[in-house]
């Protein structure tokens, strides 16, 4: 899984940080998303999917790799 975030769309709601705090953070200037790990470990994938689903601005895109 590869994560792409769109900081222009992001509204700093923080849903991603609550869902997957090891993967997402918010920057200190405008609270928008900071991607800590663009390629999360497999055991984080459920939390990352939750983060993408909860994002109110649809700013998180997941690229699933073929197995």
């Amino acid at each position: 899984m590869h994560i792409v975030v769109d900081t222009d769309r992001c509204v700093g709601g923080g849903q991603c940080v609550m869902a997957a705090p090891e993967i997402f953070d918010q920057n200190d200037d405008d609270g928008t998303v900071v991607l800590l790990r663009a390629d999360p470990p497999p055991d984080a994938s459920a939390a990352v999917r939750e983060a993408a689903r909860l994002c109110p601005a649809l700013a998180i895109t997941l690229v699933e790799e073929e197995q």
Partner: peptide, 15 residues
């Protein structure tokens, strides 16, 4: 909306 909201977002960041 984004211009105005982003003045505030950092103060309400989760951490």
């Amino acid at each position: 909306h984004g211009r105005l909201r982003k003045m505030l977002t950092r103060y309400f960041a989760v951490r």
